[in-house]
Design a protein around this nucleic acid. Structure first.
Lengths: 343, 343
DNA sequence: GTTTCAGTGGTAAACGTTTGCCACTATATC
DNA sequence: GATATAGTGGCAAACGTTTACCACTGAAAC
């Protein structure tokens, strides 16, 4: 690999000048010298050493992403948004999966710092009382004070910049929509116990239910994946009663619920209305009613914040959830209300 | 951030010794000195500078991943496998999405090289005749000769190490399974035209059909996503005829097909058998019959090859597809054969 | 005819590691 | 007692950049 020195020699200038030409600097360089350096670089196929630059400048053009579960389209879309926007400013994205485990998050965070990442984005919220949470918070707070840009895209118990969507409102709105369709027996399904984002969504659901003077039912908190939804609804069906409507903790769970219902001979929305929260692309194919979020944009916001040249970039407003009505929800039928019994 | 020099001073030794203790070296160090260095490092919260290490050693512990589409679970699982295995050896994974565009792949490849990645993994095959393919091949071949480890997990027209699964056989086997169920009108759906992996799968399907003296039908080559499957089957239904069985170019397409069928009142496998290729987790929830591949392991293989300490690591055998029979395929019924007409 | 200054280019000192080489000690070998 | 050798530790030179500082030129300002 050609180095700056070789380019400088070929162009007949000093490395300083070559550096100034090749890696944008305020220092002026005459246009003929500039040209000769550029042709020399092209001839030699010069590639700057990111390592040397990082070492010298004490920061590298790296954005770290610590995701809860990259297999969940919600995070995959977020990661993609970050990557697209990062690439525009010449940043690369280091992806780390942490499985919602604070210990793993901490390890990944440390590694990211070793690589002098300019910024680190946490995708996914924390779990109340998970061991290692306090230590992670300590590390993050220290890094933030040291000038590393840390962004959380979900509720987190540390002092990072926060671009956080309103989970409570999302499920509140969605539940109210279900109620507005005439459903009364509305169940909330899924989620990881203690996961802040899920608790918030459950809270929004409960608030809407209480306001309508209905009893909330929260079940199947066995995870955030499609299987969880499948298992949860299987459990409900096994108990012999189907609610009129189901609000799922996320889209994946909702898709799992649909998969079970459809393969078991139930129909949506005739037998039961189902909705998700998240707005991933997967839901769209199933015509899922869901609270959507522009995920790619949200990721982009975080990347742009980190890549921003300004010393104190303004924190962007988080996007808002929007209700996207699909074909998995419909008005309650009188038959529905009578034929089934609420657990 | 504490540097090695600070640690060395606190421990009362030279930086050389500190380096030898903290970053594994063959040079022996007495255990008491070793201890004092380690405690000093702990006290100061020493974090090695990956940039400095990369600069000095001319390679950094980075594995680059160039994926076709990170939103496709197939690649997401692969990426996850790479990440898990990479992390075990202290490597970090840089993820780049290239949308199957050789120009983008080239850009990402260059950036990865700037960061002195030890290795780069291409996930996803190339598209015949796509502009920029030759230039990408030139760059890759140059990098390979320069000692960068490049691994392709799908058919590719450059001289990288290859860990490539047998796409032809996968669809051949799957098609034969469909035929063994008694189906005669078997259609192949989906895929990106010219995408090598898809062409291979289509070829395997055709071979099986020819052998059974049946006319192959390949349709709906509009992409690899769920939407593509949905649209393709919608088109087929609009033409008024449903095949007895459908082999999809990948699992995502198959799920899209199922989504359409189920939401349109068709039943699987009663009305039509559907199968995919890939073995992503998503398919499992729908009970999809599919040719599965241990994707996480496959990714791990690539990572392990790159992280290998040996100068000439042996190239691992690719895993083989295995038929996983779900609930979306069944024996042909006599009614099926008579009631419908093949386009 | 000075002085000032914008424009341009070079010199050299970092940045934080790793590692080849040398030096010293203590023990083993002849 | 001389010599080899294993064990241990330090010195200093890189690795490829960036950038503060200095130097020179020519034109503008006085």
């Amino acid at each position: 690999m050609a180095t700056l020195r070789e380019v400088a020699e070929l162009a007949g200038v000093s490395v300083a000048t070559a550096s100034r030409v090749l890696n944008g600097s305020a220092h002026p360089v005459s246009s003929d010298v500039r040209d000769s350096v550029q042709t020399a670089a092209k001839t030699l196929g010069y590639t700057p050493s990111a390592a040397a630059q990082a070492l010298k400048q004490q920061r590298s053009k790296i954005i770290g992403v610590i995701a809860s579960d990259i297999l969940d389209p919600y995070f995959a879309e977020l990661a993609r948004g970050i990557e697209i926007e990062a690439a525009k400013s010449g940043y690369v994205t280091i992806l780390a999966n942490a499985n919602r485990d604070p210990e793993q998050e901490r390890t990944k965070f440390r590694v990211l710092r070793e690589h002098q990442a300019s910024g680190i984005v946490f995708c996914g919220s924390d779990i109340e009382g998970a061991p290692g949470t306090a230590e992670l918070a300590r590390d993050v707070n220290m890094a933030v004070r040291a000038g590393t840009r840390v962004v959380a895209l979900a509720p987190r118990g540390f002092d990072s910049t926060k671009i956080i969507i309103d989970n409570v409102e999302a499920s509140y709105e969605l539940t109210r929509y279900m109620l507005s369709l005439g459903h009364r027996r509305v169940t909330f399904i899924g989620g990881v116990p203690g996961l802040t984002a899920v608790e918030q969504r459950a809270d929004g659901y409960r608030r809407a239910m209480f306001e309508a003077q209905l009893v909330p039912h929260v079940v199947g908190r066995t995870g955030m994946r499609q299987e969880s939804g499948r298992n949860a609804i299987a459990g409900i069906v096994a108990e012999g009663s189907l609610p009129e409507a189901i609000v799922c903790a996320n889209d994946e769970i909702a898709v799992g619920v649909l998969a079970y219902l459809w393969t078991s001979g139930y129909r949506t929305p005739e037998d039961v209305s189902v909705a998700g929260i998240g707005g991933t692309r997967g839901g769209a194919v199933f015509g899922l009613t869901t609270m959507t979020l522009p995920l790619v944009e949200l990721g982009g916001l975080a990347a742009r914040y980190i890549a921003s040249a300004s010393a104190q970039p303004s924190v962007p407003e988080p996007p808002r959830f929007e209700l996207s009505i699909g074909s998995t929800t419909a008005k309650a039928t009188s038959g529905q209300a009578r034929s089934q019994q609420f657990g």
